[in-house]
Nucleic acid binder design. Structure first.
Lengths: 108, 108
DNA sequence: TGACTATTTGGCTATTTTGCCAAATAGATT
DNA sequence: AATCTATTTGGCAAAATAGCCAAATAGTCA
């Protein structure tokens, strides 16, 4: 794998990594519904505001969400809704996995 | 976020995380073409065979790839091809990000 | 059986990630 | 200006991840 190819996969991995956390996946789902400010999300996930701020920062740094400051609050919104489409595939992975176990058990 | 909801997002995150690594994304792409054995992939990514074996183990543990032993070799193949579809969205994220920078620069 | 090959696993270190607290920053209000 | 609120950032410790070497395992073939 040469240098330029590797760089391409590193960029992709960075985007995947930004989503690869339960709290961040939850946040993306919430932002799909409507924009939210930091403390609102912090209450929902029951984590420190600073922790949520860092999660949001990660999502924003790869461009998945957008931020807009209004007054003292910062409202975050989903910039790239197609990430929601991944979920159906994730469910597919889970189904395939369940099926595999069924087959494995069936063979006993 | 209650317990059962959290558990659901943790499962999803585990699947995302399995893909959130440049080497593993590369491997998935290669397996989309055709099945490969461990050493074949190790040569391609220029990493230790044991390292690649562990990457494959992660992908298999969440059900994304399948393994089949034939002789002394183990052939891996892509079980859930829909993960390939994520790439077009990843490209979309990158484009949105590029556009954001363009606008930002344009406003200077 | 014994040697050989392919893969996995144990053990280790280095690096990254996570989450909290405390402090800093930015904007609004009096 | 002083204060108050919302958010971000510095710093830290705990946990997870990555990669390599060496050793163990599983299968093949003489």
């Amino acid at each position: 794998m040469n240098c330029v190819i590797r760089a391409r996969y590193e960029v992709r991995a960075r985007i995947m990594k930004a989503l690869a956390h339960p709290t961040r996946l939850f946040i993306v789902d919430q932002l799909a519904e409507r924009e939210r400010c930091v403390q609102e999300l912090a209450e929902m996930v029951e984590a420190d505001v600073s922790t949520v701020s860092r999660h949001l920062s990660q999502l924003r740094s790869v461009g998945i969400i957008a931020d807009e400051k209004r007054g003292t609050q910062v409202f975050y919104s989903l910039r790239v809704p197609c990430v929601l489409g991944w979920q159906s595939c994730v469910e597919g992975v889970l189904e395939a996995e369940a099926e595999r176990h069924t087959i494995a058990l069936g063979r006993v």
